[in-house]
């Protein structure tokens, strides 16, 4: 589904990615590990079409041929990207935020559908309050609902569990398990080796801008993975986020 070849991104003398090769098949659930600044975010941004690579290529198999603006837009419609930002307008209510993005995404924008999505992340009853009044954790939960509003085939998540409250983490885990069962493709950047091992079907560690480890989860038990992980990146930092 996705073919990444010699992908590199430079910022002057710094390089975020040197030369990354990765083939992602439909249905792959990838947990992406690496130090801070190893290029995880850059890689996800390039996959999402928000950044252009400096060298190399990154092809996402299009639904239909062609390379025009139409095709690019349609490809974006199949991608859901959850970044560090919530991408919500603080002065609009939850409902208004989702309605706006639903209209842009071309999915049903009726209140019942949207309220259902808001309820699913545990915010029922607060949908008519401005997002500004939400706590950080609530905003993040709504951000998840927003990012996956259009039920994308390809999920991109950038450290989604960082700072997320328990309710949000539970929802996100449930959502990811469901998505994996539904055969969706996913790339998520993580720090927590155990959590990644639990959720993913494939484990990739990026170091110095290239893939230092790329293994099927089932062929690599958690302890063995931990050892390999520590050998590449040093000892695992204390588990971050609200994930258990």
């Amino acid at each position: 589904m996705i073919e990444v070849r010699g992908l590199a991104k430079y910022y002057g003398r710094q390089s975020a990615l040197r030369s990354l090769d990765l083939r992602i098949a439909r249905g792959d659930f990838i947990a992406l590990f690496g130090r801070n600044g190893a290029g995880k975010t850059t890689f996800l941004r390039i996959l999402a079409g928000l950044a252009r690579p400096s060298a190399g290529s990154c092809r996402i198999a299009p639904a239909a041929g062609g390379a025009g603006r139409e095709t690019a837009a349609r490809t974006r419609g199949r991608i859901g990207y959850l970044s560090h930002h919530t991408s919500l307008y603080p002065d609009l209510t939850a409902l208004e935020n989702l309605r706006f993005f639903a209209r842009l995404a071309g999915v049903p924008a009726d209140d019942a559908f949207l309220a259902g999505r808001i309820g699913a992340v545990g915010l029922a009853g607060r949908e008519r309050e401005p997002v500004r009044t939400y706590s950080r954790g609530m905003q993040q939960r709504l951000g998840i609902a927003r990012a996956f509003l259009h039920d994308p085939d390809l999920l991109l998540l950038d450290e989604p569990f960082t700072g997320l409250d328990q309710a949000g983490a539970d929802f996100l885990k449930r959502y990811l398990v469901g998505a994996r069962r539904a055969g969706k493709t996913c790339v998520m950047a993580l720090h927590d080796a155990e959590l990644g091992h639990q959720l993913a079907s494939r484990l990739v560690v990026i170091d110095r801008g290239t893939a230092a480890l790329d293994a099927e989860r089932d062929s690599l038990p958690l302890d063995a993975f931990r050892a390999r992980y520590a050998a590449i990146l040093g000892p695992q930092p204390p588990a971050g986020g609200g994930a258990s």
Binding site: L50, Y81, H85, T86, S87, L88, F101, L104
Partner: peptide, 20 residues
């Protein structure tokens, strides 16, 4: 500036609409 605040521009760019 308002679009930049919460990374909203990023969310907009991800939408399957023509960016024009």
């Amino acid at each position: 500036a308002a679009e930049k605040e919460n990374g909203c521009l990023e969310g907009l760019m991800m939408m399957p609409a023509d960016r024009g």
